[in-house]
Design a protein around this nucleic acid. Structure first.
Length: 473
RNA sequence: GGCCCCUUCGUCUAGCGGUUAGGACGUCGGCCUCUCACGCCGAAAACAUGGGUUCAAGUCCCGUAGGGGUCACCA
């Protein structure tokens, strides 16, 4: 009765892994993991014009980064391979021939040009163009260049059930004898996908919303082939702020771009799943929580607007929750990309801890903490405002205090800063800000005592001395 | 244009006939405070619209409007 779940993600390798594709892959993966089923990755590379090996690599790279491992597919193989459509051509030919022999498909000799002309004519007459069945009853002549068309059965309408949208019905009058195999023998999407889903024993097809209109003809294909129709789940699109389909002009759309911007994969996964799926009021989910709770019954039917601000919040929330050592390890490639070699630096975990709840992304973390691993880059505005002549005596006081103390710790520093402030009847801020600018080059940083401690006595003294010279003019 | 799908705060959503319509992001106030964050407290903010069904409708049905998708020898 209940066969083990087999789902698949079937991208066409025409570009990087798009945010929308990633979500489709993710939900399939979650369902497989939730049910203990199999997650199959299949590459639909039958569009030879646009498919590239680089795109395949980019997609696999994106999926690995998100942690979406596949049970069958490129690299891992599996019992239903190969998992590239261009390596399954014999299979499609066999199934197409079966259809032709059974009278359920036929050879069509119309040329692209003839059909384009007819289409144009129909448009001129404001008529819907539907293939008129020109070659429907012609004898089969393999020597003539031809495509294979599916012979649309006589029926009123086609209905199927969608796990997220419910029953969907389409009048047969809007369907036509689709071409299923090109003249060069390469199958078209509707046919290749069906044959593969049949032979790979896929029993739930979860894919983008933009495929609902293909589903009716596919249902008919399953029936013509004599196989059970799988369950369908059509996932709503991801929109940009203007409510049109998310695209480049809305900003970054590839998952690896988010990696490069310093997002944690956990956060991207978390955000993407929550966009269109919910579990009560919960916002933050670990991977295992997602696997535990995910189900198509709570996938919404409405398209969702991609909200970068919320994704940043999710990312920041995740960064705060990671152990500092873990966060430090994750930040290494980002420091490297910024030209800072911090691996093995004993201060790294402490520095990361100091910025953990201040940074929104890993890139932000690196940017903010830069002054601990590189010379001070003095912000001119900060200098002008906080390193004037009146700052000199304050800096001097702190400088002397630090150099006079044998062992620095937070308690000592707190007393020192308070004493300097009290001696001049100033608020603590009047003392801390000039020192902060002297030590970091800017006006925002972790607590000033932490900054001194992180920098250490010698470096702190040097930086204050340098600032003193600036005060002097 | 035909067909298909969708419609709760600006955004993501909870709701599955009876709720002061809840949460989150963002926004705005306040608290905390050495800066920036974090955290905490509070506020503004939604059932597209018109008809039904029902004692009762955000929840069910129909229409309208709006939005999206799709109409290839692309996927």
């Amino acid at each position: 009765m209940n066969a083990p779940v087999r789902v698949r993600f079937a991208p066409s390798p025409t570009g990087y892994l798009h945010i929308g594709g990633a979500r489709t892959a993710l939900l399939n993966w979650l369902w497989a993991r939730h049910t203990g089923g199999k997650f199959v990755l299949r590459i639909e590379d039958t569009d030879r014009e646009r498919s590239t090996d680089e795109a395949v690599a980019a997609i696999l790279d994106g999926m690995r980064w998100l942690g979406l491992d596949w049970d069958e597919g490129p690299g891992v193989g599996g019992p239903f391979g190969p998992y590239f459509q261009m390596q399954r051509l014999d299979l499609y030919r066999e199934y197409a021939e079966r259809l032709v022999r059974g009278g359920k498909a036929f050879a069509c000799y119309c040329t692209k040009e003839e059909l384009d002309l007819q289409r144009e004519q129909a448009r001129a007459e404001k008529r819907q163009f539907i293939y008129p069945g020109t070659c429907r009853d012609l004898p089969y002549d393999p020597s003539r260049r031809h495509v294979i068309r599916f012979r649309l059965p006589k029926l009123e309408e086609v209905t199927f059930t969608d796990l997220v949208k419910g029953a969907i019905t389409r009048p047969a009058s809007t369907l036509q004898d689709e071409v299923i195999v090109r003249a060069d023998g390469v199958p078209l999407y509707n046919f290749g996908a069906v044959v593969d889903d049949v032979t790979m024993e896929i029993n739930l097809v979860a894919r983008g919303d933009d495929h609902v209109n293909n589903t009716a003809i596919q249902v008919l294909l399953y029936e013509a082939l004599g196989y059970p129709v799988p369950a369908f789940a059509h996932l709503p699109m991801i929109l940009g702020a203007d409510k049109t389909r998310l695209s480049k002009r809305h900003g970054a759309t590839s998952v690896t771009a988010y990696r490069d911007m310093g997002f944690l994969p956990e956060a991207v996964v978390n955000y993407l799943v929550r966009l269109g799926w919910s579990h009560g009021d919960q916002e933050i989910f670990t991977g295992s929580e997602l696997v535990e709770h995910f189900g198509f019954d709570h996938v919404g039917a409405t398209a969702g607007v991609f909200n970068p601000e919320k994704m940043v919040w999710v990312n920041q929330t995740w960064m705060k929750s990671l152990p500092p050592a873990e966060l430090a390890a994750r930040s290494l490639p980002y420091y490297r990309a910024a030209g800072l070699e911090v691996e093995g630096d004993p201060r790294l975990p402490e520095v990361v801890r100091a910025f953990q709840e201040r940074a929104k992304t890993l890139v932000d973390l690196v940017t903010q903490s830069r002054c601990f691993f590189a010379p001070v880059e003095m912000d001119p505005k900060a200098r002008e405002k906080f390193l004037g002549p009146d700052a000199a005596p304050i800096l001097l006081g702190i400088r002397d205090g630090i150099s006079a103390t044998a062992t620095l710790d937070a308690g000592v520093l707190e007393k020192l800063f308070h004493d300097v402030a009290a001696a001049r009847s100033l608020g603590l801020g009047k003392v801390a800000q000039p020192v902060r600018v002297a030590l970091t080059g800017g006006t925002a940083s972790p607590g000033i005592y932490d900054v001194v401690l992180l920098l250490g006595r010698e470096e702190s003294l040097q930086r204050i001395d340098a600032a003193l010279r600036l005060c002097a003019g």
